[in-house]
Amino acid sequence: MISIKPVFGWVLLSALLISCSSNKPSSRYDMDQDKGPDRPVDMSHVPDAVPKVEPRTRAGNKNPYTVLGKTYYLIEDESSYKERGYASWYGEKFHGHDTSNGEVYDMYAMTAAHKTLPIPSYVRVTHLENGRSVVVRVNDRGPFHEGRIIDLSYAAAQRLGISQTGTGPVEVEIVMPGDTPPPPLKPDDRPASQADGVYLQVGAFSSRQSAQALQRKVASATGERVFISEFMAAKALYRVRIGPLANQQAVTRVRARLPEAGVYSSHVVQD
């Protein structure tokens, strides 16, 4: 048997440790700015996410939760969720690190981060300017930037055509397991700001008392008409809505006042 001298053995052990540690993802805080892959990667072949029934863990659905001093409440019934706003994307800085539900983020998979949808959820995201559409699986929280409603993986962003621009105007619509994903928007579909009967939904509760409490706070903060829309099924649902609002300027103005009522997330609905 050939013996290894202590010094050489230590060098060999150190080399092995360095080699092993280099395979682990570095801290995302080591990277100042997020970015995509170093070389162009064609994501056109990556298929849409396929909605399916999955367990929802407490770890991924803490409710409420607070980020940067703001408290967010999860949507209790996402079956009618539809919202328009701006999408962004995240890539290498978070690639290989844990998402909010403990999964590992893969920027080449069709996933997304959302502030208030249950995890996991599935949504169709449609670019309002070029008509491109993808279905993604929500498995993370974010984006926590004003005016952005969803944070897409690099793969989804490239397929939508926003990987170069960074952000883009989108419509996000829920896709429930077993449902046929809603079709992409037609080119002549009108933006929400031009449609009749535009409302902001600021909450949905199984308790009428909870809905009424939020109704009072929102009405006081905004000075707008706030009402409760009842959805009666196997379990009653009380949706707190503002409106109707005349245009996008009115929507923006009302949203700016919602933090005064402790509301930091809302979505547009049309009746």
Rank of each mutant, 00 (worst) to 15 (best):
M107E: 08
H145K: 15
I150T: 03
S266F: 00
A233K: 11
I162P: 01
D151P: 07
V53Q: 11
D271H: 11
L117W: 01
G168I: 05
A192V: 09
G166P: 04
N101I: 00
S193G: 15
P118N: 01
V50L: 10
D98A: 15
G102P: 02
P37E: 08
T116G: 06
S26W: 11
Y90A: 05
A49P: 08
T99F: 01
P47C: 08
P6F: 10
D188T: 06
I75Q: 05
S3K: 14
N130C: 04
G131Q: 08
S19W: 15
D106L: 09
Y73N: 10
F231Q: 15
S44F: 11
Y29H: 14
S14H: 12
A49E: 10
W10D: 11
I242L: 09
A256E: 14
V170Y: 00
D179A: 08
N63S: 03
L74V: 02
P244S: 09
T180N: 09
D30R: 11
P118H: 01
K24R: 15
K82V: 11
V46L: 09
L160D: 00
V263E: 03
V240H: 08
I162R: 05
V202R: 00
M176Y: 10
G197W: 08
H45M: 14
Y105I: 01
Y122V: 00
L160Q: 01
E260L: 14
G223F: 04
L74P: 05
L17N: 07
Y86A: 14
G197Y: 10
S207T: 08
S193F: 13
A221M: 06
K62S: 11
I18K: 08
V268L: 11
Y86E: 12
G166A: 05
S163Q: 12
T111C: 10
P244Y: 07
V123K: 06
S3T: 11
D151L: 02
H267R: 12
Y264M: 07
